[in-house]
């Protein structure tokens, strides 16, 4: 089939393996487009996309906006900081107001789990989830898998370990779904306090020893330690320094393995905390490829959803 099985991209959980493959195949073509001297195609010429961000974001929003513009869509941006949300307007009212101005697609980030799902039951526009609370961040997982496929040829059969704060991470959950659907093996590794208690139920391996995890995997996807989530009432680990000593990945550690693994990071990196600079800037790291692929993958998602109308 040349079309997706869904009208909205709410989470990887709703996608089929064929959907993921179609997105990647389409993203291959868009990657060629964005590397041309003129990086634009007119596909979404008559479509208006609203980027609605109730939570801060720099790169995801920039990446979506570039993807939309490279497809020639009209783009409106909205962030909660400057909006009537502060004045007490409900989510549905806010979005309905925006849609009354004839918007065809909504890209939304929200701090509440399920906010885009709720919206999809009430409005007509196609919705792309750009992150809902600690639940899913589907386009990030897609671009991660796309980058693995690009570097290693395929995702199927590969061993991927996700490091860091799994408890608060929507990137981790979406990645687990995406990788499993494509036939990869998944492990999570981090301090026990940052691993959800029943994460093993998803069929992933659980490890608390970084060296063992690195030795096992082909790809290390290192997540950011979300400093804003630490230091509240609950302390998940004693100090950043201790975290980096126990769980930080540096070049010496990677060189001590008997194989060369691929290192990924969704950004922004806390240099010297979860990832040392000598790894982040090495040939093994495909962090900047991920960023470039992000635009191509988001173009594919927007294009294929727009096609569904």
């Amino acid at each position: 089939m040349a079309e997706l099985s869904v009208r909205h991209l709410l989470g990887i959980k709703d996608l089929t393996r064929e959907d993921i493959e179609l997105i990647f195949e389409t993203a291959d073509h868009f990657k060629e487009v964005i590397n041309r001297p003129i990086k634009k195609v007119p596909s979404l010429r008559d479509i208006t996309v609203a980027n609605i961000f109730f939570e801060n974001s720099t790169r995801t929003r920039l990446s979506f906006e570039l993807a939309e513009k490279r497809l020639s869509a009209d783009v409106v941006n909205f962030s909660a900081g400057q909006s009537s949300v502060k004045k007490g307007e409900t989510l549905l009212d806010t979005v309905n107001n925006i849609l009354s101005m004839k918007v065809d697609m909504v890209v939304m980030r929200h701090s509440s789990v399920g906010a885009p799902h709720f919206l999809s039951r009430h409005i007509k526009a196609n919705i792309v989830n750009a992150g809902d609370g600690t639940h899913e961040h589907p386009t990030q997982a897609l671009l991660d898998s796309f980058s693995i496929r690009e570097r290693l040829g395929q995702v199927e059969g590969k061993k991927v370990c996700i490091f860091g704060d799994i408890l608060h991470s929507r990137v981790a959950l979406s990645n687990i779904f995406a990788l499993q659907k494509q036939g990869a093996e998944v492990m999570v590794c981090g301090p026990a306090t940052l691993l959800p208690k029943y994460i093993g139920e998803l069929g992933v391996k659980v490890e608390t020893d970084v060296r063992k995890a690195l030795q096992w995997c082909d790809v290390a996807n290192v997540l950011r330690i979300q400093l804003e989530r630490q230091g509240g009432d609950i302390a998940y680990f004693p100090s950043l320094r201790e975290y980096s000593q126990e769980f930080g990945i540096d070049k010496a550690l990677l060189d001590s393995l008997d194989k060369e693994i691929v290192v990924m990071h969704p950004g922004p990196i806390n240099r010297g905390v979860e990832l040392a600079s000598d790894v982040a800037d090495s040939e093994q790291a495909i962090i900047l490829d991920q960023v470039q692929n992000g635009v191509a993958v988001r173009m594919a998602v927007l294009y294929l959803l727009a096609q569904k109308g």
Binding site: A2, E3, L22, E25, H29, E32, V33, S43, A306, Q307
Partner: peptide, 14 residues
């Protein structure tokens, strides 16, 4: 785009 019944699969440009 969005007007035809069956969507088309894109091909490679080289």
């Amino acid at each position: 785009f969005r007007r035809r019944g069956t969507p088309l699969r894109a091909n490679a440009t080289n």
